[in-house]
């Protein structure tokens, strides 16, 4: 083979291989469904200045939590929060964190990869025969099923574990129960992804929480892995006062 043809053949082979790699990493959006795939970063809440969005603040907790919820908030010690062991943020908190999320639409599932805490969620699309987890099995990020309705992806999630910071972390500490249920509706307008959220928890919320969040698309890749460092996380406690200084210090058994 002449050098020119040889170079051309190599270039074609490399290009083909490259395309295959790209295809493997970013599968095509299945036909007939709204294109929600991409990487989205930053967020804007509606209504603006809400006391539940991007995450519940103290005023929101006072207004929305049941007596049980307020009692737990009063009792909980920030020093006991699992995040100081690098436990990941739960839902819906992670929706309001100011880091990126990647959405990949496959034929039978949708995968959400969050930059924050290396969280990966799988939404199992209905009608594909996915086996549900056995009764009573609970998960930190719940069990999510989804369906397309018009231009929206509708995700329903339940089967959450109890989470002492399920509705608010960072000193607010608003808990969520195993009865938490989320409905997420995703749609896209140009380069903006919209999430319309409804969160229910009859144990800790007086009624459903609703808010809307817009995420602009970004061309920047996710910064992964997150690689949370427990020692660094626990150093944050230097500026947090314990509610129970008379108690023994908390042993960080999950940071090993």
């Amino acid at each position: 083979m002449k050098p020119l043809w040889k170079a051309l053949a190599i270039a074609v082979a490399l290009a083909t291989t490259g395309l295959a790699v790209v295809f493997t990493q970013s599968p095509a959006v299945p036909a007939g469904v709204p294109n929600l795939s991409g990487i989205f970063a930053g967020r804007r809440c509606f209504p603006a200045n809400s006391d539940v969005c991007p995450e519940m603040n103290a005023k929101g907790a006072e207004r929305l939590m049941t007596a049980r919820g307020k009692a737990l908030i009063a009792a909980f010690d920030e020093h006991a929060a699992p995040k100081y062991d690098c436990s990941p943020a739960g839902l819906p908190i992670i929706f309001g964190d100011p880091w990126a999320v990647r959405i990949e639409q496959l034929a039978d599932r949708v995968i959400f990869t969050y930059e924050k805490d290396d969280v990966v969620r799988t939404v199992w699309l209905e009608g594909h025969g996915h086996q549900r987890p056995r009764s009573g099995l609970l998960f930190m990020h719940g069990y999510s099923t989804g369906r397309y309705e018009g231009n929206q992806l509708v995700v329903e999630t339940n089967r959450f574990t109890f989470d002492p910071e399920g509705f608010a972390g960072d000193v607010i500490n608003a808990p969520s129960s195993t009865q938490k249920r989320l409905v997420e509706r995703y749609s896209r307008n140009g380069n903006t992804l919209r999430l319309e959220l409804t969160a229910e928890d009859p144990v800790f919320l007086l009624g459903p929480i609703n808010y809307t969040m817009d995420y602009p698309e970004t061309k920047e890749p996710l910064s992964l892995p997150w690689n949370c460092d427990p020692a660094s996380a626990q150093r944050n406690l230097h500026v947090v006062k314990s509610k129970y200084p008379q108690d023994p210090p908390i042993t960080r058994r999950n940071s090993q």
């Binding site: 991007p54 995450e55 603040n57 995040k83 960072d170 000193v171 997150w226 460092d229």
Partner: peptide, 29 residues
Amino acid sequence: HGQAGLFDDTRIVELKGTVKQWSFINPHP
């Protein structure tokens, strides 16, 4: 956001010192 009540937003202090450690690591450098 996420630091509610931990710092006094109404005041600023100025410190001049030497760097002992720079931990550029998550969750918070």
